[in-house]
Design a binder for these strands. Structure first.
Lengths: 322, 322
DNA sequence: TCACTCCGGTCAGTTCTTGACCTCAATGGA
DNA sequence: TCCATTGAGGTCAAGAACTGACCGGAGTGA
């Protein structure tokens, strides 16, 4: 603890929690002379962390942003917040960073004290139904276990429900996690069937690291994402939903976010286009925009809307049951 | 760089990216002898980071979870993912950790290289409509600036639109950010009007740190959250929505997550109860459960459902416009 | 059994670190 | 304009820490 290394870490930590620190305070906290503090600051600078200093009355040190990320020194609560945030992101709430989020998550989880992990789990229940967008929820814990397996070359055992409903237990050498169209897939070498397989993470139960390590095999083709794409023989039916919404484009855009392209029309209404596998999402969007609209296509959407609309009316009209 | 401190940081970083590292590899990377590596590992242990080692063939070192969070050494992509995740969480997607998320976010943002900050901004557009739940979106950048102002005692200037629509420019000494019922409030001392004020963060534009620091005043009462609550004279109307859904409780529960309590009924259907300010959310839930239901209450929900249902039917029936 | 890996003691030379002391250089308020 | 405040950094000497080399030991899994 009285180490130089430990002190440097504490110094970094202090600099991250408060922007300005008078040198005298820092020196006192670290229990060294001010001269040594200045030398420590220098050391940090030599390590590439830009520490600014301002002189005069109310001067002090401040950690600026530099060229590289410094070690993040977070307290318990912050760590929990980070893990929860990453879980949400990994769940597919934000496009394009699922894989990285899982990687970061497994890193954070791995070093997180167990008591904090429990707090994260407790909060997981609060995950907002961004899973709304349709499709089953992926268990963030499962993702973490799998990600660690991939990273650390550890065999993993789990239960799996195949597409035809058949249940089995698998022992695999995990290779890569792939996020594709709101779904997670695990590409792995099945150690019992001796072949490469892809598993849908949402169909897999209780993954467990066995602790046994293995040497990574080379995936034929090399590209895991491509591998998954090829295996998905049955491409999901894709619809292109086109709607005219009688509301300003800004309003529509705010609700649908990135999930659709919104174009302005001359008469102040807007055209919304989105590609989907099912109609749940567009209906949700329409319900929450709260404006009149016309369906341009496809015809199936009309049926779906009619169905949903009637269901809502039935529910509204139904007598009180209880 | 050839420092011991720097080396320890690099060692920690290595241990965080891969679970197992053979000692020889680590020694080579750090350009020290294996003996010194062992000593470094010891040092880490003395600092409280639990490093496990396994012997025999394919042995190696591994960073376990310990009693406290170690410094997180993240790469660029991971840092971006963390920031994006925190932003989402701060936006109110998950209940109960908004404040901590903002604190963590401001910490991360502060030390983040500018180029990464740009990437985070670019991804912000992708925020999923969790804002769905209603209410205006809060700008995460604004939150960050304000949080840093509070933490570092820096005066902040911003534009503000009062409830009556009047615009003004304010110069304040920020005191605390409070998240209350899906909204963010800033409690601050107005430096020009010489008094304590609360500002709704979503009505405030372009907050900027002035760089001028101040000495925190004492907030009357001390509790910022309480202060905001007192100022919010108009409590939002609350409805208790109760529904009977003709679907198994598990199904319903999966969709609504934590946002409602779901009870099993004898006949296989379920009762769903939730407290809301507006009906948008329950309607979305109903639409996406995809099952028949009856409204138990309140009556206003029936009206809302009828309206939405009819709107959907109109949209479905409407002639193609373009 | 054997190969591989981590463990840790000892030693001596080298390097680093520390606090004390001092002079400068900005800064911002009086 | 002056002055108190606060960071910058040179120098020195004593002491502490670090390092690599070399060693025998011990656990692990094939």
């Amino acid at each position: 603890m009285a180490n130089t290394s430990g002190r440097m870490l504490r110094l970094l930590s202090l600099l991250q929690t408060h922007r300005y620190w008078p040198g005298s305070d820092l020196a006192e906290r670290l229990e060294v002379s001010e001269r040594t503090l200045r030398r420590d600051i220098d050391r940090l600078r030599e390590l590439g962390y830009p520490v600014d200093a301002s002189r005069g009355v109310a001067g002090g040190y401040q950690l600026r942003s530099g060229a590289a990320m410094p070690p993040l020194l977070v307290d318990d609560e912050e760590a929990v917040a980070i893990a929860v945030g990453l879980r949400t992101a990994a769940g597919g709430a934000i496009d394009g960073i699922e894989e990285v989020s899982v990687r970061a998550l497994s890193k954070v989880i791995q070093v997180m004290p167990p008591r904090l992990r429990r707090r994260v789990d407790a909060l997981q229940a609060f995950t907002v139904p961004a899973t709304f967008a349709g499709g089953p929820t992926v268990d963030a814990t499962a993702l973490t276990v799998l990600a660690q397996g991939c990273r650390d070359d550890e065999r993993i055992r789990f239960g799996y429900t195949a597409r035809d409903g058949e249940q089995s237990t698998r022992l695999v050498e995990p290779h890569r996690l792939v996020s594709l169209g709101r779904r997670w897939y695990l590409v792995a070498w099945d150690a019992e069937k001796h072949g490469w397989r892809t598993f849908r993470v949402d169909r897999l139960t209780e993954p467990r690291a066995t602790g046994a390590r293995f040497r990574q095999r080379e995936l034929p083709g090399g590209d895991a994402a491509e591998f998954v794409r090829q295996r998905l023989s049955v491409a999901p039916a894709q619809y292109e939903v086109v709607l005219t919404v009688h509301a300003p484009a800004e309003v529509v855009e705010r609700v649908v976010g990135q999930w659709a392209t919104v174009d302005v029309r001359d008469d102040g209404s807007s055209t919304m286009t989105m590609r989907v596998d099912s109609f749940e999402w567009p209906v949700l969007v329409l319900a929450s925009v709260g404006a009149e609209f016309d369906v341009v296509g496809p015809p199936e959407l009309r049926d779906y809307l009619r169905e949903t609309g009637e269901r809502l009316l039935r529910g509204a009209a139904a007598p009180v049951t209880s």
